[in-house]
Write a protein that binds this DNA or RNA. Structure first.
Lengths: 383, 383
DNA sequence: GTGAAAGCGCTAACAT
DNA sequence: ATGTTAGCGCTTTCAC
């Protein structure tokens, strides 16, 4: 019994019956003086002189169940009325709607904007829409959003950046919500089986540190703010490990893992700024900086400038993500690129396979390689 | 007959029955071995030993219709089962869900990220969620999204940046979708009555140009890319007008209104870069630049740097929007601030009043003043 | 104060 | 090849 599978086509997408992303429905807006409400399937059926089920069949890819002549009449009636199926009604009947949910930590960070755009592209190719929510790294919000999605008929969720534990989502998962984390999967506590898709965070950070090392930097800092996701643990550990592998002993004095201010609402660039201020105020301050992401890196850049330092002459900074404006900053940001397009395609694909029942096996874990993008924010160490 | 009004409370928000944004439902995830599906109202009713209508009443603010003892039993059953009403079913019955739609031109631009966050805040205060969509300034996409929302039971839409004509949305409006444009309202063509909420674009640009003028700049450019929204028309005209008011004749040689490349998918910062390259290559190149928004301004900054010019010594740039990273850039960006919080609060408020039927009058047009934020990207003209 | 019943618009099983 | 019917889970009269 796989109640959903019949709505999915073989390529794992939604049936085009949901007709989103399909061709030009742009001329049929509200013809026939349809002043008040939308047309229903019954009205279409009456106009076409057939039964509602025939309309339904025609619209749901079962066109072969009727004569071409009937199909024509149906399609014309649909067009004439500007009929658009009521997705609540459909969802109520079928148990799901063709929407996948997205929860990101902050829509204000352009990385998550790009994340959403890529997810939307990938989803649209499968006739599926996306509902974007702003979790703000708050477990309660995440849970409420997920709950709300489920009750809207949404059966798949991509979690942008997950807290350490996912157990607050256990109940949702048990009630049928499929989740893929854009992150290392949790510890499978509670028997929670969650798929994951992510960039190779450790590899990425190793590249970043390696780059700085090669440029002769000996004192390399890590600027992150709170370590509240598996991602961040990976990055922090990779930073320490790479240092050690090169005979350098990491020290807390080089790590900025604090909130900017009280309250959890530290904006990333502010965290970078605070981190740079703190780290650069020390004796023997670091000369190389690895930031947890590009927005934080911008903050570090600003902090260094504020201290009268020149980048990249005095200090070097490498970011993580490769958001677009990294190109435009002064200096342009050297960073670690996440292959976002490929990542989101994988995430959507894994998710849809779960939802369709095509994949019922053990959790899938995709990890794609990062890439070092050398621009202008790093230079040779002076000493 | 105002079929929606009964779901709205007097303050114009949704009834808390939709219990979103309300208090801690964070411990009730999936108790009682609820392995497969969510509980239905019928199961709750059975457990409480009452009828479904009583459950419904209890959950929809009609608590006074039953004895305190009954209410207790009901609430306990709800909690024990972790019951969450199915919003599709509710929506199907009532005709709407407590979600407002947002269509923005680009989720990758942090301004629209902030826009979404503010909208979400304002909406959540009214027990209402937000569905965010990426219109990419494509009329077809916008229309499809709006269509899709309507069929999901969404009855209110905030349109981030609207194309010149809104007539592609006429059909939707006629079918009951309430729309507020974050922009000057269209020309009311087709009798389309659309509310609007916006910053005073003309005033804002006048401040920007005025600031440059006061610093002694005589040749002031306007960098925008395509003028495809009412917003942009206003800003362009205000630029020309302010120049004229100061005895300077605007010339096309100072205006960059092109796409970066073929295709409509010019990223804003790229447009700024291309604009700066073009404008700075001229004889008697402009020394002051007004950008259509902050992202474009970053591109201008980059272009000027590329030309070996120093900011603000050689050229001055002012942006529009006041996105957060404007603070962190090098130099920090002088810009025109949009009062986003207030704007979105107004937008949500106007929209909800429309949806509830509290406002059935002529279109409301809110315009809030802009503010000049002086930072480091402008300096005195040399000559 | 509480319950029974109808029905929102759709799909899918089961006739024909 | 097409129609009939029975719900999906909820809210809402209308009875009691």
């Amino acid at each position: 019994m796989r109640p959903l599978s019949n709505k999915f086509n073989k390529s794992g997408g939604f049936d085009s019956s949901e007709n989103f992303g399909s061709s030009g429905s742009s001329e049929n807006s509200g013809k026939l003086g349809s002043s008040g409400k939308s047309a229903t399937i019954l009205e279409v059926a009456r106009l076409a002189g057939v039964s509602p089920s025939t309309i339904s069949n025609a619209l749901n890819g079962k066109k072969n169940r009727m004569s071409g002549e009937t199909l024509d009449r149906v399609m014309r009636a649909v067009r004439d009325l500007g009929y658009e199926p009521n997705r609540m009604a459909r969802g109520l009947k079928t148990g799901f709607v063709s929407i996948i949910g997205l929860i990101v930590p902050s829509v204000e960070n352009p990385f998550w904007g790009a994340f959403a755009r890529c997810a939307e592209h990938a989803a649209m190719a499968r006739n599926c829409q996306v509902m974007l929510c702003n979790g703000e790294r708050d477990i309660d919000r995440e849970q409420r959003y997920a709950e709300s999605m489920l009750s809207l008929g949404i059966r798949g969720l991509i979690l942008g950046s997950s807290p350490l534990s996912m157990k607050h989502l256990g109940g949702l998962a048990r009630r049928g919500l499929k989740i893929v984390a854009f992150d290392r999967a949790g510890s499978d506590e509670d028997g929670l089986k969650i798929d994951s898709v992510r960039v190779d965070n450790r590899g990425g950070v190793a590249m970043a540190v390696g780059h700085l090392l090669r440029l002769g930097h000996k004192r390399i800092a890590f600027v992150a703010g709170p370590i509240n996701s598996a991602n961040r643990i990976d990055r922090l550990e990779a930073y320490r490990q790479t240092l050690r592998a090169h005979g350098i002993t990491p020290t807390p004095a080089w790590e900025w893992l604090e909130m900017t201010s009280a309250g959890s609402k530290g904006e990333d660039s502010k965290i970078g700024l605070a981190g740079a201020r703190h780290l650069l105020a020390q004796q023997d301050a670091p000369t190389g900086f690895v930031a947890i992401n590009d927005m934080t890196a911008f903050g570090v850049l600003a902090g260094a400038r504020e201290a009268g330092l020149h980048i990249p002459r005095d200090v070097s900074v490498v970011g993580f993500d490769d958001i677009h404006i990294g190109n435009m900053s002064n200096p342009p940001l050297t960073t670690i690129r996440q292959p976002l397009d490929a990542l989101m395609q994988a995430a959507v694909s894994v998710l849809l396979d779960r939802m369709s029942g095509a994949n019922t096996g053990a959790p899938t874990h995709v990890s794609l390689p990062a890439e070092l993008i050398v621009r202008g924010s790093c230079g040779r160490a002076k000493e």
